[in-house]
């Protein structure tokens, strides 16, 4: 029974890692055509996330695999239910993955511009879709008594869920702009800071609207009460701290603040859902929970041993790569992508 909770926490951790890490590299992808004035600038921006994006994406792949292993019914209901959304997500991830590798392989400016826009679109779509998905997770979706999704693709779209999508896109873009302020210098760094400052205001407003709407559209109010507790408050406070750190040119702190915003927001969402993993809007008893969606205790025990052995090693070598590639990229320097 406790292992079900352990796996809920592990999957929440993997998703949170994905939102933090892929968050900034989606943000960079979104910003490339706007921030890069010349081909070399755009190429440099691509290279700031070059060594990382693939391993960052594996956080999502692992979250998917962990869902399949620990909560097969969650995996089956979500993936067959959100079918068309996942189709769009996969198209974006496919295009995005090859865009990095192919973009600078040929010198033609039409070739490179095409890939830059494909990179933009394929970086915009995933956070938009995940934001919509997360809002739907909180709000609940039509799930019938056989654990099957009983709606269509269009049922996933409502003002509230679209606002959720927009929130995640903006938060990722802000996070990406702050990341760029850490990995570039001179003119590009100044542009990154200025971009972050502008997006920061908009992000705060949209997220505030999303939080307000969440009280109307989800059972958060009933569940969490009037005072939502420390976690969501910390999410809000860290976001509000961002403009100050940008003003003081403390880029590392500003980036750390959006990292905290994403972490605390993600925890808020998972706390709201717990112990449910898919909330049924038709009948509360039809919701998928960490118990009725889970694998057997033997599987969970095996997986726990494996995950707790392997994941720390992964964290160490991933952290090491961020140390190896910590230097700022400069115009005129060597670029691998």
């Amino acid at each position: 029974m406790t292992l079900n909770v352990v796996w809920f926490v592990l999957i929440a951790t993997l998703f949170t890692g994905f939102f933090v890490l892929e968050g900034f590299d989606y943000g960079v992808g979104i910003l490339i055509p706007w921030m890069g004035q010349t081909d070399e600038q755009r190429r440099l921006l691509v290279n700031t996330i070059g060594p990382f994006w693939d391993a960052n994406e594996v956080w999502l792949i692992t979250a998917g695999g962990a869902m399949f292993a620990a909560f097969p019914n969650w995996y089956a209901t979500l993936f067959s239910g959100f079918y068309m959304a996942l189709f769009l997500l996969l198209l974006a991830l496919i295009v995005r993955g090859v865009a990095f590798e192919f973009r600078s392989k040929l010198a033609s400016s039409r070739w490179r511009q095409t890939w830059d826009w494909l990179l933009f679109t394929s970086s915009l779509l995933p956070p938009l879709l995940w934001g919509v998905a997360v809002a739907n997770f909180m709000k609940g979706v039509p799930i019938d008594g056989r654990m099957e999704y009983a709606g269509t693709f269009w049922d996933l779209l409502s003002p509230y869920t679209v606002l959720g999508g927009l929130s995640l896109v903006l938060l990722s873009t802000l996070h990406g702009a702050l990341y760029l302020s850490l990995r570039t210098d001179d003119a590009l760094q100044a542009t990154a800071r200025e971009t972050a400052r502008r997006i920061g205001v908009l992000t705060s407003l949209v997220l505030l609207a999303f939080v307000v709407m969440s009280y109307y559209n989800t059972d958060m109010f009933i569940k969490a009460g009037v005072d939502p507790g420390a976690v969501p408050v910390l999410a809000g406070m860290s976001l509000l701290a961002v403009p100050f750190f940008i003003h003081w040119k403390r880029d590392g702190w500003a980036f750390f603040m959006t990292t905290l915003t994403i972490i605390f927001s993600s925890i808020t969402v998972f706390l709201d859902m717990f112990p449910r993993v898919m909330i049924s809007s038709l009948n509360a008893n039809w919701s998928l929970t960490i118990f009725n969606a889970a694998s057997g205790p033997y599987s969970l025990r095996v997986m726990t041993i494996v995950a707790l052995t392997v994941l720390p090693i992964v964290l160490v070598y991933q952290a090491w790569t961020y140390w190896v590639f910590r230097h700022r990229l400069r115009i005129g320097g060597h670029l691998d992508y």
Partner: peptide
Amino acid sequence: GPPLAIEA
């Protein structure tokens, strides 16, 4: 599912 998760 477990082999797939371990693969990841």
